[in-house]
Amino acid sequence: MQPASPSGRQQKSAPPLVRTQEDAPRQRTGTVLDVRDLSVEYVTEGGSVLAVDQVNFSLDSGEFVAVVGESGCGKSTMLFAVAQLLAPPARVTSGSVMFRGRNLVGLTDKSLIAIRWKDLSVVMQSAMNALNPVKSIGAQFKDAMRAHGVRSNAEIGDRSAEVLKMVGIDPVHLKSYPHQLSGGMRQRSMIAMALLFTPELVIMDEPTSALDVVAQRSLMVQIKELQEQFGFAVIFVTHDMSLVSHFSDRLMVMYAGQVAEVGATRQLFDSPRHPYTEGLMEAFPSIRGPKVPLTGIGGSPPNLAKRVGGCWFAPRCAKVLDRCATERPPLYQVEGTQVRCFRHDGNVA
């Protein structure tokens, strides 16, 4: 049985390097990730771009959190900041990322190695470019396992074949190079690679967006099954609101680098509190619901390099108040959800 607390995990003598199906699903509880006031800036010649602005959220063990928001609102940047994968010109300007009680911000690459992939793995937005083109899939799996002390080639081979089978790919493709696989297979093998050690948290940046609708569905179902089987938590970035409604426990809506609203997925769908969330819900067609005209959101997102005025959504907001033009709304706590909108000022608990 896997101990639950981080200290307990460390005390355990000689943990198995490769977690096989036998010791899964792991019994995990508690908070895996706690992000506080995280801000990220891109420093460019034309000035700095505040891509992530004071983001707060936390993630429980085994939880599936979806992140939605328009293109360019800072979703990928936020994920990379959580995984400590930012490179210049991006830098974290404030905040903390507590992973199992340990602040990852400011740790060196060397001290992060122990956490990476074993406890926290990443599936990147572009599976096309995220695999090394000159190495076979198997060799890239092997690199990850050897980096974490697995030496036996038999063990590496067995585990690699196992995870590849889990995502529905024939293990013969361990010998294949990325360019020999289809886009969907590449995406699946990335997910397989992310599961080599059955980490506690898997960060996925639009893992299905390169696929056709049918393939998207089946991959999504598979991800969900694996998640339930192994109990890892997921942060899942997507543009597809129907995927969100079916698969996520909680939903985080981002606008212009900020959290606009975050709460239980059902609740956000049933009673969206932020006008932007409302707009998003209206922007996608409901498959089973009654036919309503799609309204969407007028205007375009603000330029993150030139932040002026009050609420950043105000220029596009249908329910704008006077104070929105000058004051910046904080996150209000409303019945289990958090929402950044002055219309909920009175509800402060």
Binding site: F80, A83, L85, A87, D109, L112, I113, A114, I115, R116, W117, K118, S121, V122, M124, Q125, S126, N129, A130, L131, N132, P133, D143, A144, A147, H148, M193
Partner: peptide, 16 residues
Amino acid sequence: LADDYVRMARAKGLSS
């Protein structure tokens, strides 16, 4: 170095 597979290699915890 700006390519995704390099970032991916970092994420995997490979040595510099």
